[in-house]
């Protein structure tokens, strides 16, 4: 439990900072939604006249901004990006914290196996991730309450927070695996961020090619932000197949992280 507590303390500062960013973004963004504006349908027609690639690049791929649900999906997309980055950071710092802080001796003289140590570290990170997703749900519900929308969208907030959790845990596991695979923590940070970037670019790519089914399905594997798409979330659906993909990625990445963490030489470089 000591290790868990120590990890919780070490991750607290970053959590507070990103929680403030998420809270501010949702609070400031959602309260400014002014309802269905005049010409909402027309603007959708205009947007649909662009080719999908252009729409995706211009950030208009995610739905109709004139309705509350479309607007909310775009907000959640940015929350997803924050979570992807934050989760990758959590995952890799769980694995490489001792190397960065030169505290190997402190930790590994304790009578605990390395896999126990890593489990506790990852558990602490996972707790923060779950809390962040719950924060997303609570804030969405609370802010929307004050908007007087005339309809209850609670199930959308639940689905979309679950989507956040999937995005978060995929990048959390990938971040842990990457940190295990490289020797220097600094390059672990670099590659974990590259992974987030690839996920983001693949998301834009998926939006752009969503009308070419074969290509889109391949790109979608690399795009955790689209394992369940905004239109599925809006329609109340959940992509089971890609949730299986997500679980496979998480399991594989964690296996790599554990294998590397338990067998690595303890060197003090970097």
């Amino acid at each position: 439990m000591n290790i868990f507590r120590r990890e919780m303390r070490a991750d607290l500062k970053a959590f507070i900072i990103w929680a403030i960013v998420v809270a501010f973004f949702l609070g400031a963004g959602l309260t400014k939604f002014t309802g269905v504006k005049n010409g909402g349908a027309e603007i959708t027609d205009v947007i649909n006249a662009y080719p999908p690639l252009v729409r995706a690049v211009m950030g208009m791929g995610s739905g109709n901004m004139a309705t509350f649900t479309g607007f909310y999906m775009v907000m959640e997309f940015y929350i997803g990006i924050i979570l992807a980055f934050y989760a990758a950071q959590l995952g890799r710092s769980a694995v490489s914290r001792e190397m960065v802080g030169h505290t190997y001796e402190f930790l590994f003289v304790r009578p605990r196996s390395r896999s126990w140590v890593l489990s506790m570290k990852l558990l602490a990170g996972a707790v923060y991730l779950v809390v962040m997703c719950m924060l997303n749900f609570l804030l969405s519900a609370a802010v929307a309450q004050s908007l007087d929308l005339g309809r209850d969208y609670t199930s959308l907030y639940v689905r979309s927070s679950a989507w956040c959790a999937v995005v978060g845990f995929v990048f959390f596991a990938v971040g842990a695996a990457v940190a295990g695979l490289v020797r220097k923590p600094e390059s672990g940070a670099k590659w974990a961020n590259v992974a987030v970037l690839v996920g983001y670019v693949a998301t834009v790519g998926y939006d752009a090619f969503s009308d070419h089914e074969a290509a889109a399905n391949i790109i979608r594997v690399f795009s955790p932000l689209r394992y369940t798409t905004p239109s599925q979330l809006l329609a109340g659906e959940w992509s089971v197949g890609y949730t299986v993909v997500a679980c496979a990625v998480i399991a594989g990445s964690l296996a790599i992280a554990f294998r590397r963490f338990t067998t690595q030489d303890l060197s003090e470089q970097g």
Binding site: F71, I81, A189
Partner: peptide, 26 residues
């Protein structure tokens, strides 16, 4: 300890914040 996470974090923060003015017309 490490600057990569900090640097990318700042950039992403800038990106996310840049979405607010056009989305909210505020």
């Amino acid at each position: 300890h490490s600057v990569t996470g900090l640097g990318v974090g700042l950039g992403i923060l800038g990106f996310v914040l840049s979405a607010l003015p056009p989305m909210t017309n505020e």
